[in-house]
Each structure stands twice: as structure tokens, then as C-alpha cells.
């Protein structure tokens, strides 16, 4: 197994009486990792401690095998960081800014300039790179922020909400780029985001943080396996017949407001559902396994940390007689 990119042992950070991080102990292997957690969970504090922006109250941490200590520079030599908030160095054009960031990381000027142009091409910046960063739109600032984090060819990049402010095509472009960083260049990426579907799409692993503690840390595949096997079926027509067929097989079915049917699979595979529907000559338009698994896991983990129950989505009813007729519920769904 590769050496962990991040090793934290009892990492604790207090701001006065408030504990932002509470004895975080974790080994994160190389890869694309999603950092999830509600607002104020301690994600940013965790990243800041790893970047040495904040001095931990207790505990130790190593990034890329280098220990984090006050005044220590080497742990950030091969690390890139794209913060959540708008940030740039004023009075510089885009390419000048990215080149300068490369130089600040110890690159010679010529190499920094070459990489800056390559990275700016990669993040989709055209001639705007010759304009002052101060005049950029939010989307362009987001791209240039990503470029500065990558210019020095880091081994690890922290990306805090990297798609904020991007239009759909820009978002797609950046997500593809982030996905490629690990696969093509071997750069480990830690993405902090509230957009779970983005995390699910580009990350192999997830770390869920809540109330300053690590609540979950595993690969997305493993987390989904641990999750109850929810399947959503989009009937191609005659939804009543679908419900009746499934109910006949003794499967509790939930009818969603978008017309889909939600049920819990008996096995890992959804093959038996396909067989059942084929037997009843009911071709489904679409079958999705674990459609909101990460979302539900996230809510469950956070609710567990807070000592409450997750608010949405509601758990499936233990037994619902299919075809029993629609019944109103608070969230607009009906069983």
C-alpha cells in the first residue's frame, strides 16, 4: 500500500473554548478524496492545520511524509491549495500571477512561465490571461485559482469548493480536469465540497467530518456497500402494474413524486428485479442502484454526530402494501 499522503494523530484545534477539531486521527492514502461535512464541521480548519495556517492545539500531522511544525516550509513544497474564498494577488495579469505563484514555490522564472501558460490553457483561460486578475468574473477567478494551485506540479492539491461560481459548461470542464489529475498525472486531490454528486463523480474515497471529528472514512464503493441497497426504477409506463408486480413479490415500494418507484433490494445485485419485471413483461426505462447513497450516508453520519435523526430523505416504511392508494405525506412523496 502507498504511504499515506496525510497522517494525523490526535489533531486538535481549539479557538478559545470552541473545539474546531477534536483528536482527529486518520491516515489518508493517495487518490482523489472528498472531504465532506456541514458548515462549521471543521473541514477548513483541518485543511488549514495541514497547510500550517493554524497551529494545532494538540496532536501531530504529516503531509506527504513531512511533519507539520510551526515555521516548517518543506511540507508545502509539493502541495497546492485553492481556497474557497476569492483570493488573488492584486495588480497582476492572469499569466503573470500564475507565473509568480510558480516562482513562490521555487520554480525558475522560465519554467514557471511555461507551466503557467500550459495550466491556463488546461483550465480554459484564453486571451483573458493577459488581463488583470482584479477584473475577472467569478468563474475566471475560480479557474485562475485552480491554475495557481497546479502550476508547480504538486503531488497533493487541496481544492476547497473548486466549482463555485462556474457556469455548467465551466463546471463540467473543471470536474473533468480534476478527475484527470489523479488518473493521468498521479496527483492526489482532496476536494472539499458541499456538492455530493460532484464528490461522488470525481473521488475514490470520502472523509466525512462533523463536529470536529472524522465520522466516516472509506472508499465510496465500500461506503455504498455498507449502505442499504436502495434501487430506483423509472417505469416506462403503467406504473400501477409495476407496483403491483413488486408488491406481489413482497417488496415494499415507495412512489416518489417524480413518478419513480423506490425499493430496497434484497441482494447486492438488482438482477432479480430485472428478472421479475421481465416475467411481468414490464420493461423499465431506467434502474438506478444507490441513487442518493452518499447523500444519505452524509446525513446519517452528521445526524449521528449531532445525536439527531436525519431529516431527509425519509427512511423507507417497513411494509407498505403496494397499490393501497396514494397517501399524502409532508415531503410531497406518497406511498
Amino acid at each position: 500500500m502507498d504511504r499515506p499522503i496525510i497522517e494525523a494523530r490526535g489533531l486538535t484545534k481549539c479557538f478559545g473554548t470552541q473545539r474546531a477539531l477534536s483528536e482527529v486521527t486518520i491516515d489518508i492514502p493517495p487518490g482523489a478524496i472528498g472531504l465532506l461535512g456541514p458548515n462549521g464541521a471543521g473541514k477548513t480548519t483541518f485543511i488549514k492545520c495541514l497547510l500550517n495556517f493554524e497551529t494545532p492545539t494538540a496532536g501531530t500531522a504529516r503531509v506527504l511524509g513531512r511533519e507539520i511544525r510551526p515555521g516548517e516550509r518543506s511540507s508545502r513544497e509539493r502541495v497546492g491549495y485553492s481556497p474557497e474564498q476569492d483570493c488573488h494577488i492584486p495588480g497582476m495579469a492572469g499569466c503573470e500571477y500564475v507565473t509568480y505563484c510558480g516562482q513562490l514555490s521555487g520554480m525558475p522564472f522560465r519554467k514557471a512561465r511555461q507551466r503557467a501558460h500550459e495550466i491556463l490553457d488546461l483550465v480554459g483561460m484564453g486571451q483573458e490571461r493577459y488581463r488583470l486578475v482584479d477584473t475577472y468574473s467569478t468563474g475566471m477567478k475560480q479557474r485562475v485559482k485552480l491554475a495557481q494551485a497546479l502550476v508547480h506540479d504538486p503531488d497533493l492539491v487541496f481544492l476547497d469548493e473548486p466549482t463555485n461560481g462556474l457556469d455548467p459548461s465551466g463546471r463540467e470542464h473543471i470536474l473533468r480536469l480534476i478527475g484527470s489529475l489523479r488518473r493521468e498525472l498521479g496527483i492526489s486531490v482532496i476536494v472539499s465540497s458541499h456538492l455530493l454528486h460532484e464528490i461522488e463523480r470525481i473521488c475514490e474515497r470520502v472523509v466525512i467530518i462533523g463536529a470536529g471529528r472524522v465520522l466516516e472514512h472509506d472508499s465510496i464503493a465500500a461506503l455504498k456497500d455498507r449502505h442499504r441497497r436502495v434501487v430506483e426504477i423509472a417505469p416506462s409506463g403503467e406504473p400501477e402494474r409495476f407496483v403491483a408486480a413488486l408488491a406481489g413479490a413482497g417488496v415494499p415500494v415507495e412512489r416518489l413524486s417524480n413518478g419513480r418507484l423506490r425499493l430496497e433490494s434484497r441482494t447486492e445485485s438488482a438482477e432479480w428485479i430485472l428478472t421479475l419485471l421481465r416475467d411481468h413483461r414490464l420493461p423499465p426505462a431506467e434502474i438506478v442502484a444507490n441513487p442518493n447513497a452518499l447523500h444519505e450516508l452524509f446525513l446519517k453520519a452528521v445526524a449521528g454526530a449531532n445525536g439527531t435523526t436525519p431529516a431527509t430523505p425519509p427512511p423507507l416504511p417497513p411494509t407498505v402494501p403496494a397499490g393501497a392508494g396514494p397517501t399524502s405525506s409532508n415531503d410531497g412523496r406518497h406511498a
Binding site: 507551466r115 500550459e118 480536469l177 484527470s180 488518473r183 498525472l185
Partner: peptide, 9 residues
């Protein structure tokens, strides 16, 4: 994924 045409440092 995007194809990364990028020099390494």
C-alpha cells in the same frame, strides 16, 4: 476525463 497536455516539473 480531460487529456492533460502538460509538461512536468
Amino acid at each position: 476525463d480531460a487529456t492533460l497536455d502538460l509538461s512536468r516539473w
